[in-house]
Computed example of a mutant assay.
Amino acid sequence: MGTTPIYDWPYPEMGDPPAGPTQMQDLAVAVETDVSRLDSGYRYLETVVYATVGTPSFAKASYPLARAALVECQGSGGAGGGTATTPAGQTSAGSGGSGGDWAAAWVLMSALATSVTVTVPAGGAGVSGGTGGNGASASFGAVCVAPGGVGGVSLGAASSMGAANGAVPSATTPTGDWYVKGGGGGPALRGGATTALSGPGGSARMGGGGRGLGVTTGNNNVAPGSAYGGGGGGAVAGPSTSALAGSAGAQGIVLVHLYA
Rank of each mutant, 00 (worst) to 15 (best):
T3I: 13
T3S: 12
P5F: 15
Y7N: 15
D8A: 14
W9C: 03
Y11E: 00
Y11G: 00
P18L: 14
T22Q: 12
Q25W: 15
D26M: 14
L27D: 02
A28D: 10
V29S: 10
A30K: 03
D34R: 15
R37H: 10
R43P: 00
R43T: 10
E46A: 11
V49P: 01
Y50D: 00
A51T: 06
T52Q: 10
P56E: 04
S57R: 12
F58R: 02
F58D: 00
A59N: 09
A61S: 12
A61Q: 11
Y63S: 05
P64Y: 14
A66N: 02
R67Y: 01
L70T: 05
Q74M: 10
G77Y: 07
G78E: 08
G78S: 10
A79I: 11
T83R: 09
T86C: 05
Q90M: 12
S92K: 07
A93D: 04
A93Y: 10
S95T: 08
G96S: 03
G97D: 09
G97F: 02
G97E: 09
S98R: 06
S98P: 01
A104M: 14
A104I: 05
W106R: 03
V107T: 14
L108I: 09
A111V: 06
A113P: 04
A113K: 14
S115C: 01
V116R: 09
V118W: 06
V118G: 03
P121Y: 15
A122T: 13
G126L: 06
G129P: 03
T131A: 08
T131D: 04
T131C: 00
N134A: 14
N134E: 03
G135N: 12
A136K: 15
G141Q: 11
A142D: 07
V143I: 13
A146Q: 04
G148H: 09
G152Y: 06
A158S: 15
S159H: 02
A164E: 00
A164P: 00
A164I: 04
A167Q: 08
A167H: 01
P174V: 02
T175I: 13
T175R: 15
G176A: 03
W178T: 10
G183Y: 04
G183I: 00
G183M: 02
P187Y: 15
G191C: 02
G192M: 04
T194Y: 13
A196P: 00
L197T: 09
S198E: 07
G201L: 05
G202E: 03
G207H: 01
G207M: 00
G210L: 02
G210I: 01
V215S: 07
T217H: 07
G218W: 07
N221E: 01
P224M: 07
G225A: 08
S226Y: 10
Y228C: 02
Y228I: 07
Y228F: 14
G229Y: 02
G229M: 04
G230A: 06
A235N: 09
V236I: 08
G238S: 03
P239I: 02
A243E: 09
A245Y: 13
G246C: 10
A250M: 05
H257V: 02
Y259W: 13
A260H: 01
